[in-house]
Write a protein that binds this DNA or RNA. Structure first.
Ligand SMILES: [Mn+2]
Ligand SMILES: [Mn+2]
Ligand SMILES: [Zn+2]
Ligand SMILES: [Zn+2]
Lengths: 143, 143
DNA sequence: CTCTAGTTGCAAACGATTTGCAATTGCATT
DNA sequence: AATGCAATTGCAAATCGTTTGCAACTAGAG
């Protein structure tokens, strides 16, 4: 009998390998991150978590995000103005376009830009460790 | 007799046109911004200001930065981790490369990248209002 | 020189995030 | 299944950068 395998990050294994315990709050938070389709902030993750387990605290959300960021399991984004927002570090690299009117976050990727960044850094005598490219714009009025 | 004209932003005129008063603290802060060669944060500006006029307060520095940002006289940068940093909005647009070891900020500009950004936004149905491109890297070990 | 709205310094408030601590719990061990 | 202890938790208090209320103080128009 064949099974359809949904592609989801195996956080638990990653955590065990990092030598940290799989606790109830962590399981809940990991689940939320796993099926988040957006880029929630700590408070939003906390709300979703509380709905599943009312005993979870905001501190634990913050501590868990820091932990996951530390082992490279998630990425933290500090978009203009607001608090940090997170997303699983699965999939290929991408950057973001933020709709300054609605707050919508759109993902994109430009291999060409990535290359140019490398070139620039190299020319300046640097190796890029990471970068941040955010476009802030508004929807073009449909003529 | 010819004079060498040093290029400095005429903040005072800009401010008067924006209908705000030229006060002592503002004059001091504007002077500091005018000849800053770096990207100082509010506390750093405050320290430099106090050295010139001990009565200036940190609140005023923050209020002035917000004011100047509002009229487009300065740019605010929120580099990873640290507090907001500022720089006069004179000269052409540029982006930044931050040395993650020393904290040094290097400016660069790539017309090619700017174009690509426009293309990407346009393809997604957006007009870019502003953007943020920051490269974080470390100096390449000289082989 | 007057008058008043704009601006200030100060202290208190803020929002996001971190931290100390005592109570709890995962899990390696018997 | 019971034990032992370090890792983890919830809570409250602390921290950091920044903003704000307010009464005292000016810039600058008339
Ligand atoms: Mn994303
Ligand atoms: Mn710059
Ligand atoms: Zn990128
Ligand atoms: Zn740019």
């Amino acid at each position: 009998m064949t099974e359809t395998v949904i592609q989801k990050p195996d956080y638990e294994t990653a955590l065990r390998e990092a030598g940290v315990r799989i606790t109830r709050p962590r399981r809940v938070i990991l689940g939320i991150l796993t099926d988040a389709e957006d880029h929630p902030d700590a408070m939003e993750i906390f709300k979703r978590a509380v709905a599943l387990d009312p005993s979870i605290s905001l501190s634990t959300v913050y501590r868990t995000m820091k932990l996951l960021e530390g082992i490279g399991a998630i990425h933290r984004h500090a978009f203009e103005g607001g608090p940090s927002r997170f997303e699983p570090a699965i999939g290929e690299h991408h950057d973001h376009l933020i709709d300054i009117e609605t707050g919508d976050v759109i993902e994109f990727h430009s291999e060409r830009i990535e290359e140019l960044q490398q070139e620039i850094a190299r020319a300046l005598g640097y190796d890029i460790v990471h970068h941040r490219l955010e476009l802030y714009g508004r929807r073009r009025r449909k003529k």
